[in-house]
Design a protein around this nucleic acid. Structure first.
Lengths: 223, 223
DNA sequence: GGCCTTGTTGTGCAAGTGTATAAATAACCT
DNA sequence: AGGTTATTTATACACTTGCACAACAAGGCC
């Protein structure tokens, strides 16, 4: 047997394909989020991330200065996606402010925003926000954007109901409503099986209507 | 100079004191929480923890089978302390249900429960709850205990107001109120400087009163 | 006091970490 | 097709990690 005909050379170098820069960065970020969600920050090693992305560890350094930057970009991407999804529920053309508010709450308290993986990521990164100013700012921007969005809709709702509301009241309402949505979101992510389908959204809508002193609409009332 | 008189021998072994078992375990758990809060799970190494506790790393194995068990015990201790503190605000002898509920909310939305360190710990551990059943159960027990406590007070409040409330309504109220408190707690921990003193508690009390359909009491009304 | 228990230290080790860098090769250009 | 480039692999390295274990000494007991 001449070894020149060996179909599987022992020291075969791994085959690979060249991908576009943007695509690779996306894949690496996604793999990073997967690893952090599954194994935590300690388990998200360069080798694990590379394995998940289908490349070898050395490649990461070709796209990111270091592990820290990769994690920061991953978190930024996560926050961006979260707020984008949440706010997407607000762009309803021909709908009353109240309908838009209700739709906003419903969207935020159902899949895909209620999601154990996203929660795990959110909590893991936020736990480091106290010590990492970069993470803290990434979070803060996302949060304030979210709350301002809530405040804007609340203003519209109250205006449509011809109710006066000064800035302080408006802010308080937004803070409270934001808190309800956050709290219910957490409960849903952590123990989704404890709630029937749509139950969290129903609780949230009722709570927000109570907060704003709105009479329930028929379409959202329980029979 | 005879070196036998050397007052500082080069290979001097470190002096130490023997502590009681319970004391050492407590110290190690506290040091663990400190390290996790400051450096995250990845930064909480056995050597760092030992340094913080004022001992050497090897000693940890004398009290805990391994690092994992130490972290689990630390988290259990944290959850226990949190729920204990929270529920402590409910044991007011001669107070109306509404006063107790308001005091409960106030206590949960001020120091020492509003605390960046505790939040950091909470988030860090909870991020791993999705993958670590032991952490998940430790959290779940604490959370359900908390919610049951809320539900009990709500029942008392409604009873005092002579309002009927079936089990389903009661549960929904408890879930919503729990969500508000959680959400405001998070906001306070993450961005305490954005809120004036007592503001979060005021927002929380108002939101809960709205949820339960209670007319504001004079003593909690703004002028 | 001297011994004995055991809490405590110090050292060693294999596995795994992030980073650096050289070698290989896929894909593009003409 | 052949040469060129820069994406990708592979290997090396210094360092840290959790854990194991032997030596040591602090404090109680007689």
């Amino acid at each position: 047997m001449p070894d020149t005909a060996d179909p599987a050379p022992m020291n075969a170098r791994r085959k690979f394909r060249r991908e576009g820069e943007e695509r690779r960065r996306q894949d690496l970020i996604e793999a990073t989020l997967d690893c952090v969600a599954e194994y935590g920050l300690q388990g998200a090693t360069l080798r694990t991330i590379a394995l998940r992305a289908g490349v070898t560890a050395g490649l990461i350094r070709h796209y990111f200065p270091g592990k820290e930057e990769l994690l920061q970009e991953a978190y930024t991407a996560l926050v961006g996606r979260m707020t984008e999804q949440a706010k997407a529920a607000l762009v309803m053309e021909d709908a009353s402010p109240r309908q838009r508010l209700a739709a906003f709450i419903t969207a935020n308290l159902n899949a895909p925003i209620i999601d154990a993986r996203v929660f795990s990521l959110w909590a893991t990164f936020l736990g480091r926000a106290g010590a990492d100013p970069t993470l803290a700012r990434a979070h803060s921007e996302g949060y304030l954007g979210f709350r301002n969005e809530v405040e804007a809709v609340v203003a519209e709702v109250l205006a449509a109901e011809q109710r006066k509301a000064d800035a302080s009241e408006l802010r308080h309402h937004a803070i409270a409503i934001n808190a309800v949505i956050d709290g219910l979101w957490i409960e849903g992510c952590l123990a989704g099986e404890m709630f029937s389908s749509g139950e969290l959204a129903a609780i949230g809508i009722k709570a927000v209507e109570a907060e704003l002193g709105l009479a329930p609409l028929e379409q959202f009332q329980e029979k």
